[in-house]
């Protein structure tokens, strides 16, 4: 069994701050790491690899500087990582990003399973797995919670809004993993030592994929785009350092002032 797992170096969205005066998003200095959903994806892939035997390659489109970010992924059980240096520096349109990933996946050769998170931690737009499945002409098992291999087929529970649907499909297939469905395992020192010997192969879009950012950008349907931050307008009053009864009175006072509570003497 050959498994490919797509992972993303994601921004920690909790650390994205908004300048309250200009409503600009402050993205500089926001920590980046392999996303939580991506570690869930690796966990799901490692479990299938353990059950069926075979290899697991993690595929990442990201900055070349991310080369040292995959220690956990390799310690968890991925055999190697293919890091494709992102020609768009993280700002590529999904349509172009998916074309690079498609080329990389095809270059890595025939596989049984291509796995990805249902969405990335930062973009959260749910589109890479469906678009890739469409481009590759493969069935997509989305929002997977339970995964097992039975008689050469993949069986999965799909976590939908109102229901859990159980499906099965022939391989090869694309699988997107539901959030928090596969909590990543703890790794040991031994795992970490083994991981050091595993390769992280650095590719570019040009070599060996033969793609250029300029060509990819020609497919764009955007005339322009801009971003602003959402400014939160909250009072931010903090009550502390007093007895529970005094603090309770202070909150009650505030809610009376706001006309949320009324009446009383």
């Amino acid at each position: 069994m050959k498994i490919l797992a797509l992972i993303k170096i994601s921004l920690d969205v909790a650390e994205i701050k908004v300048d309250p005066a200009t409503a600009q998003l402050r993205l500089e200095g926001v920590p980046e790491k392999v996303g939580n959903i991506d570690k869930n994806t690796i966990e799901a892939a490692v479990r299938l690899k353990e059950a069926a035997g075979g290899t697991l390659t993690a595929v990442c489109l990201g900055p070349a500087s991310a080369k040292d970010s995959f220690k956990d992924v390799l310690a968890m059980g991925a055999d190697d990582v293919t890091l494709i240096e992102d020609p768009f520096g993280g700002k590529g349109e999904p349509g172009a990003v998916v074309r690079i990933l498609e080329a990389a996946v095809r270059k890595l050769g025939p596989f049984d399973l291509l796995m990805a998170g249902f969405a990335s931690d930062d973009g959260y737009t749910y589109q890479v797995a469906p678009r890739l499945a469409e481009r590759l002409g493969l069935p997509l098992v989305s929002y997977a919670r339970q995964l097992s291999l039975e008689g050469g087929k993949l069986k999965a529970d799909r976590d939908l809004d109102d229901a859990i649907q159980t499906v099965q499909v022939d391989l090869p297939a694309v699988v997107s993993v539901a959030e928090e469905a596969f909590p990543p395992r703890r790794t040991t020192l031994m795992d970490a030592i083994k991981a050091k010997k595993k390769p992280v192969n650095l590719w570019t879009a040009a070599d060996p994929l033969g793609l250029s950012a300029e060509e990819l950008a020609k497919n764009s349907r955007l005339a322009s785009s801009s971003q602003i931050g959402i400014v939160v307008h909250r009072k931010g009053q903090v009550f502390k350092g007093q007895s529970a009864a005094v603090l309770a009175d202070k909150l009650v006072d505030a809610l009376v002032e706001d006309k949320i509570l009324k009446g009383g003497a």
Partner: peptide, 25 residues
Amino acid sequence: DYGVVADLYEFLPAFSERIRARGLR
């Protein structure tokens, strides 16, 4: 809007008690 730094197990009973004692709804 309002943050209360407190143990919720102490605060919530006090919060209910103050609302009742002050006859608020």
